[in-house]
């Protein structure tokens, strides 16, 4: 383990069947007005390649906090989170940026598209950060827009899109670099039922096709139905962790 922890973020993912993400004794505390608030309290999880998993629980249970730590946007107070062989605690800013840039896609509740960029440019952005050459970039963006069915919207700005369309752009942006992991924080919270199902069906397809690991943070029943594994959090602890039979019917 010690050996793995020292690996730099840019290196290849571990063996296919190994755990992609391991948390052990993970604790996260926030200083709030004089005392420490414990948002995560001893999380032990193994998440494998290709999973379609959800962190489920009421608001304030620690879902976003855990997702942020897995995405190396935040660090554990104690315990560890090893993502793709890197202990996130030991990553500096550059290395954690590199880990996200190369291996992790984010999807947010509020889409977080760049308003001055077109749909095409929004999707292209992560590839520019990767320094991918123009030809490959164009092919990848075109393909990602096909996945989410927005080819004809490529030249529009986010302001011209509906919520469902915006979130599809966000999915394309997260998927365009074919990352190992996609972290989606309440992706359907601002969407109606139909759009939610569309988005989720798309994700299931990409999950099977590309073997991308999806981790959701959600308390939305529409999302939970699609999950193959449900990890229930309450007050910063895992209270249930079980396999599920997904229900793809609408």
């Amino acid at each position: 383990m010690g050996n793995q922890a020292d690996r730099s973020a840019g290196e290849a993912a571990p063996a296919k069947n190994g755990a992609l993400i391991t948390t052990s004794g993970l604790v996260k505390q926030f200083p709030t007005g004089g005392y420490l608030f414990t948002a995560l309290n001893g999380i032990n999880l193994l998440i494998d390649r290709g999973e379609f998993t959800g962190l489920v629980g009421p608001s304030g249970s620690g879902k976003t906090t855990l997702l942020n730590i897995i995405g190396a946007l935040d660090y554990p107070s104690s315990g560890s989170a090893v993502v793709l062989g890197s202990d996130t605690k030991h990553l500096n800013h550059k290395q954690s940026a590199r880990l996200r840039n190369h291996h992790i896609g984010f999807i947010f509740q509020t889409y977080n598209l760049l308003p001055v960029y077109t749909v095409y440019e929004n999707v292209e952005f992560p590839l520019l950060l990767l320094g991918m050459e123009a030809d490959r970039r164009r092919r990848a963006v075109t393909q990602a827009l096909e996945w989410v069915g927005l080819t004809d919207r490529a030249q529009q700005r986010p302001a011209q899109l509906s919520g469902g369309e915006s979130q599809r752009v966000a999915v394309a942006r997260a998927m365009v670099k074919k990352p190992e992991i996609v972290l989606a924080d309440e992706p359907t919270a601002n969407l109606d039922a139909e759009n939610s199902h569309n988005i989720l069906r798309m994700m299931v397809e990409l999950n099977t096709e590309l073997e991308t690991t999806f981790i959701f943070a959600t308390h939305d029943e529409k999302v939970i139905r699609y999950l193959r594994r449900r990890i229930t959090l309450r007050d910063g602890r895992v209270v249930e962790d079980r396999e599920m039979e997904p229900d793809y019917t609408t």
Partner: peptide, 14 residues
């Protein structure tokens, strides 16, 4: 600042 957070989440260095 939210856009800045997004840049960072997308893997842009500070």
């Amino acid at each position: 600042r939210k856009e800045i957070g997004t840049f960072m989440a997308l893997g842009m260095e500070r």
